[in-house]
């Protein structure tokens, strides 16, 4: 039974990190209808930035609390800046191009960013500094759930609540919802659609950066290629929940996290990534609109 709970907890942790990345996919898709292939790379850049900042600060002897805060903020700022720039360079000029064009451009961006980090930094796996201390109150249940799991779950919950608030109640949130429903109409009622799109990329990227920081400190190492698999898995989660739907992305992520955790725990860990990919292929074939998504009606 303990094993079951342990797998359940680790599944939740995985799932909540997927959710942080999946939200970026689903928000961008909701607004401009594009699969942002480079989103996984934004997450990787977030992890890398926090790695660099945290390591520099720890070398210069800053206290742990300061390191955590500064690394987190820096990761969010730079990831957002990358997300914003990627949109401006690779997607904005192609907004009225045939559907294949922005998709190819997005794949190009993903390859470009991956190799940029590879060349600017290194191809080796790097040890991520331990940012989350072992809490003493966790000790009695440490064989089931670790401190970092708890921190991850708490952080994602807070972030989700903040995001919900932002989208429900703020001006930019309302503008985002309006743009997602009908971009032309939003433009007509005076919403600055370009700014809304930028904001979407910035918010999505910041979420991914937080995800990057959390998972890097959880697993303890990073390299330039982590964005690819994480990106595909988060995308799978977003599709599973229904792409374009924010609660769907969270639900899909949790289901994917749990599935992976149980499948690797009870069946075999060799095929960890195969489970996710197979799930993706199966959903797209049998229920492309996902669990909470709306089925698309073609306009003729």
């Amino acid at each position: 039974m303990d094993y079951f709970i342990e797998l359940f907890c680790s599944g939740l942790t995985r799932g909540s990190i997927y959710a942080l990345i999946a939200l970026g996919y689903t928000m961008v898709y909701g607004i401009i209808g594009l699969i942002n292939f480079a989103h996984g790379e934004i997450y990787m850049i977030g992890a890398f930035t926090s790695f660099i900042v945290a390591t520099v600060l720890s070398i210069y002897g800053f206290p742990l609390a300061a390191i955590v805060v500064v690394a987190g903020v820096a990761a969010a700022i730079w990831s957002s800046a990358y997300g914003y720039t990627v949109e401006k360079i690779a997607y904005k000029p192609l907004r009225h191009a045939p559907r294949l064009a922005p998709l190819i451009s997005a794949i190009g961006m993903s390859i470009l960013l991956q190799n940029y980090v590879l060349l600017a930094q290194t191809s080796d796996f790097l040890p991520f500094p331990e940012l989350i201390p072992e809490f003493s109150f966790v000790e009695p249940i440490a064989h089931i759930i670790g401190s970092s799991d708890i921190v991850i779950l708490l952080t994602t919950t807070v972030v989700m609540l903040a995001l919900t608030f932002l989208i429900k109640f703020t001006r930019i949130g309302k503008a985002m919802r309006a743009t997602a429903q009908d971009r032309t109409m939003a433009l007509l009622v005076g919403i600055n659609v370009d700014r809304v799109i930028s904001a979407t990329f910035i918010i999505g990227s910041a979420l991914a950066a937080i995800g990057g920081l959390l998972i890097a400190s959880h697993i303890g190492q990073i390299n330039f290629a982590i964005g690819f698999i994480a990106g595909i898995k988060a995308f799978t989660a977003a599709v599973l929940g229904g792409i374009g739907s924010i609660p769907g992305a969270v639900l899909g992520s949790l289901i994917l996290g749990l599935t992976e955790s149980f499948a690797t725990g009870y069946i075999s860990s060799d095929y960890e990534d195969v489970f996710a990919f197979s799930l993706l292929v199966l959903i797209l074939i049998f229920k492309p609109s996902g669990l909470l998504g709306k089925a698309e009606t073609k306009k003729v």
Partner: peptide
């Protein structure tokens, strides 16, 4: 099964399929 999907979904399914084949060969 996948060719009835929209263009972008097709892209990602084929990507997933490519990875599945490689992972199976590896494991």
């Amino acid at each position: 099964p996948v060719l009835r999907l929209r263009g972008d979904y097709l892209a990602i399914v084929t990507l997933g399929f490519g990875e599945i084949i490689r992972l199976i060969l590896e494991n």
